[in-house]
């Protein structure tokens, strides 16, 4: 069967490529993303950098035997060294420095996640929004490898109808209309969760959700639960691997509103925060399971049959177009699904 999507995986924007913890103090990781091979390394100063995986000299894979030397990555084959900008700085032969260059992706590390900016080289990397970090507890990290596309994951944030059918939320009330601002998209909802947060036996819960997506690889949801005095932050990072494969990473962390002062109270508060974070992450995994099942099997319809009350799916899709390069989705559909099935 042909591809379920009329667009490819060469997306532009910030995408998670690893957890910070995977890299250790200095280290090299191999990653497949955007249909290509990459290496991610941490130099001795602690800075992280992603480079294309193949050495431009004779094609060795830098991630299989490559070593970190200072701030550079040394190729296992002939020992050529590349700096964080991807330029070859030295060869073991001495002599003149060859004018070799590897593609380097702008790389940053935040909240325990390594993110890279992928896109056409002439596109400058726009900044991800700053988020208030100080008050949150330690995040819980989760990941899934699924068969889907990042656009499908982010589309759910504006899909009002699925909140009740998939998640059993009632009384969806948009707090803020969906707003787009360059690569950013914001929306806010108030919903009633029929299944409580901590298991099927807990009581229905009013939640306010503030969603901000930045590109198709980063979506941050801030959930406020007045009854428990809780602020939960969940960031979802879908990264395309190749074809229809996707790495879906998510971090969950939270802040408790109430709490007494004092040192002993602070320790108790930290433990409680940790405990509730783990429970919230489990709740999120439970919420995500039916979504994943749908994503893995659904098709992307170019002309969806929308009904009133559906949420601004069309506006979302127009917004999403900016993240495809000239090779991808150049305004025209490539595959027509469903209808194409019958034709030999």
């Amino acid at each position: 069967m042909s591809s379920r999507y009329p667009f490819g995986v060469s997306l532009s924007g910030w995408f998670a490529i690893a957890w910070s913890a995977e890299l250790g103090r200095t280290g090299v990781l191999n990653r497949r993303a955007f249909g290509q091979e990459w290496v991610v390394f941490r130099g001795e100063s602690g800075e992280v950098q992603a480079l294309a995986a193949y050495c431009p000299h004779l094609g060795a894979h830098l991630g299989h035997g490559g070593r970190v030397v200072g701030e550079q990555l040394r190729c296992p084959f002939h020992g050529f060294c590349f700096d964080r900008s991807g330029a070859c700085q030295s060869t073991p032969y001495g002599g003149k420095r060859p004018r070799l260059h590897i593609r380097a992706l702008p790389t940053q590390e935040r909240d325990g996640v390594v993110l890279v900016f992928h896109g056409a080289p002439q596109v400058p990397a726009w900044p991800l929004p700053e988020n208030p970090q100080h008050a949150y507890g330690r995040p819980v990290f989760q990941s899934w490898r699924i068969r889907s596309h990042p656009q499908e994951i982010i589309e759910n944030t504006v899909d009002h109808g699925h909140f009740s059918a998939v998640h059993g939320y009632r009384g969806l009330r948009p707090l803020n209309p969906v707003k787009t601002d360059g690569p950013h998209l914001r929306a806010g909802y108030e919903v009633i969760r029929t299944q409580g947060l901590f298991g099927p036996w807990s009581r229905p819960l009013v939640m306010c959700m503030a969603i901000q997506a930045s590109g198709l690889g980063y979506s941050r949801v801030e959930v406020t639960i007045p009854r428990y005095g809780l602020l939960i932050e969940q960031i979802v990072y879908p990264t395309p691997i190749a074809g229809e494969l996707l790495e879906l990473r998510a971090t969950t962390r939270l802040r408790l509103f109430h709490g007494a002062g004092g040192r002993r109270a602070a320790l108790g508060r930290r433990l409680l925060t940790r405990f509730v974070s783990l429970a919230a992450a489990r709740g999120m995994a439970r919420d995500l399971a039916p979504d994943i099942r749908i994503w893995e099997h659904k098709a992307y319809l170019q002309r969806p049959g929308l009904a009133e009350g559906d949420g601004p799916i069309g506006r979302f899709r127009r917004w999403a177009r900016q993240f495809y390069g000239h090779d991808e989705m150049a305004g025209t559909p490539v595959v027509k699904l469903a209808a194409a099935g019958a034709a030999p």
């Binding site: 379920r4 899909d159 659904k298 098709a299 319809l301 969806p304 049959g305 559906d310 799916i313 699904l337």
Partner: peptide, 8 residues
Amino acid sequence: HCPHLGAN
């Protein structure tokens, strides 16, 4: 595939 948004 649902004609709405393509779910199976």
